[in-house]
Design a protein around this nucleic acid. Structure first.
Lengths: 156, 156
DNA sequence: GATGTTCCGGTCAATGCTGTCCATCGCCGC
DNA sequence: GCGGCGATGGACAGCATTGACCGGAACATC
């Protein structure tokens, strides 16, 4: 993982469909050497996959919300976690520090769908005791592009 | 935007590099008809781009945190928002409901970097009055794959 | 300390595939 | 019946992939 790899990763996060020829120019290598590096990054797991980045509103999920959750005493964490997997509008679920057990990130069509999920799935099932919901009023910035930092010193 | 388009979008979110031939099989169309649909989805803005999905830990950002922020009375929202843009470890920034003005999602190398940003950039600059930081202890689920819902009725 | 060997990573060239373009056909609405 | 949108199929061009060859660094041997 040298600075060439990092340049490749930065470029691929911004545009993963521009082709190896252009990527090779960024990397300063030949096309095949660039392809070899990309392949290695995939095998190592640094590149987990290739995704189309969609407009949430265009696919019917304009509403963004987070739900903080506390489980009932004695409730099963594993059961709660597994229960969330099938819900595809649950984009994220993290165990968090602070007064809450978990924090979920949701994308839904509207408030009725949000309420249905929180009241129905979370509270009724899944051993959830208390919840607190935060709505996104507007989004200033939202990206999945990670900062690709040098391992220690040096700044490209 | 019919059910074929939705199937295409679902497939492209899971694997955007498998090629048109395989995508055409999913869509049940010829290769060129599939390509035409993908092109239209890009032009319409439904597909915003093509990204490599990276492992955060592998690129040096293992720590995930959210920072809730309240601006000082009279502070400029626009200035705050614009000030965040250059920080690439700020993945998200939303104006939110509830007691806080904004909620930021951060990916950083470790606690020192997190503290440096919150204390230095947010509190000292940018007109921030109060902050509250939530750390991710573990991540159960984290995806950018959106549910591609039918516009109204019907379920594929 | 010098030299030979091996391995890793790069370039270059050829091949196979795949995405793109175009003409044609079928279907639906007017 | 006519016009337009969308899908089909084939031909072409461009690109990714593969293999052979080359160079340098690390290690072992003399």
């Amino acid at each position: 993982m040298d600075s060439i790899d990092r340049n490749i990763l930065v470029a691929l996060q911004h545009d993963g469909a521009s082709g190896l020829a252009e990527l090779a120019k960024v990397a300063g290598l030949s096309v095949s050497a660039t392809a070899e590096r990309v392949k290695r990054l995939e095998e190592r797991g640094t590149i987990r996959g290739w995704r189309a980045d969609l407009d949430p509103a265009a696919v019917g999920c304009p509403l963004l919300a987070w739900v903080f959750v506390t489980l009932r005493p004695g409730a099963s964490d594993a059961k709660f976690r597994d229960g969330l997997a099938p819900f595809e509008h649950v984009l994220e679920c993290h165990a968090v520090s602070g007064p809450w057990s978990y924090m979920l990130k949701l994308r839904v069509a509207g408030l009725p769908e949000l309420e249905a999920f929180v009241a129905g799935e979370l509270r009724r099932k899944a051993g959830v005791e208390r919840t607190e919901t935060v709505l996104a009023l507007s989004t200033v910035k939202e990206t999945a592009i990670l900062p690709v930092a040098p391992p220690d010193d040096e700044e490209a």
